[in-house]
Amino acid sequence: MSKFVEKLFNLEGRVVAITGGGGHLCGEMARAFGEAGCKVAVLDIRPEKSEAVAAQIRDRGGYAIGLALDATSKSSFETALESINREFGVLDIAVNGAGTNSSTPFFEMDLKEWQAVIDSQITSTFLGCQVFGRQMVEKRSGSIINISSASAGPPLSRAFPYSVAKAGIKNLTQNLGREWAKVGVRVNAIRPGFFPTDWNRKNFITAEREASILGHTPMGRYGEVSELVGAMIWLASDAAGFVTGAEIAVDGGFSAMTI
């Protein structure tokens, strides 16, 4: 059984790029890819964060590099891909997880703040799919995993540009999953429920809001970041060879809850 499972989910030696890799969720994903035997490029606008995660992977005996990436710049993606190809070879897996949020009330939000969230989320995902996806389409194989959200629909309150962007990411995932299916490139999304960061707790989660969140989550708790890893490994592996254009909920039942 163990050999069967190992063969089914084996990612040994595959080359991975993960944007937002210095962050709360994607940092854990990057470390998991390292544990799975992948060669990991950790990409983040904060180079000290990407290098810190890469160092953790190397300290565990893995292969990783930390690279600076402005996820709203196509040229920055292209430069990162050149570095990845030079260091590790052709890309096999890409995770688009960069992005910010805003808790500013709707009538108080200016266009600059709105655009910053949109660009950090959906524009960065578009660019990651375009630059990384082109190399995968040319070699006729690859897995792209985008990060959607419980806010992709129906939208969460107080997260206006974030919800719009996540809905766009879900749509883009379905579009590209359809377009690239016949050339061996799979495009899917993970839909996390509530995995709060310190920023979320400070800016979004009041005691009243927490009660609403947990009351709407059948498991009655927040997720642990390690609980995203299984879905990610599955989507990246050959075990998900017939899965594309899908949005996989990892949310403790949040999206299935009504009354």
Results as ranks from 00 to 15, higher is better:
residue 8 L to Y: 12
residue 9 F to G: 11
residue 10 N to F: 06
residue 13 G to Y: 02
residue 15 V to G: 07
residue 27 G to P: 04
residue 29 M to Q: 11
residue 31 R to C: 00
residue 42 V to W: 02
residue 45 I to W: 08
residue 46 R to E: 14
residue 52 A to N: 07
residue 57 I to E: 03
residue 61 G to V: 06
residue 78 E to D: 14
residue 79 T to R: 10
residue 80 A to K: 02
residue 93 I to Y: 09
residue 98 A to S: 10
residue 106 F to P: 09
residue 111 L to A: 12
residue 111 L to V: 15
residue 112 K to V: 15
residue 114 W to M: 04
residue 116 A to E: 10
residue 116 A to C: 09
residue 119 D to Y: 10
residue 121 Q to I: 14
residue 122 I to R: 11
residue 124 S to P: 02
residue 126 F to A: 09
residue 131 V to F: 02
residue 140 R to C: 01
residue 152 A to S: 14
residue 156 L to C: 13
residue 157 S to H: 15
residue 165 A to I: 00
residue 171 N to M: 14
residue 172 L to P: 07
residue 185 V to N: 01
residue 188 N to H: 05
residue 191 R to H: 10
residue 192 P to H: 04
residue 196 P to Q: 06
residue 201 R to Y: 02
residue 207 A to C: 03
residue 209 R to D: 08
residue 211 A to Y: 06
residue 212 S to H: 10
residue 219 M to G: 13
residue 225 V to G: 12
residue 228 L to P: 09
residue 230 G to S: 02
residue 232 M to L: 14
residue 237 S to G: 07
residue 240 A to E: 09
residue 242 F to K: 05
residue 247 E to V: 14
residue 249 A to D: 11
residue 249 A to T: 13
residue 249 A to C: 12
residue 250 V to Q: 04
residue 253 G to C: 08
residue 256 A to V: 13
residue 256 A to Q: 14
residue 258 T to I: 15
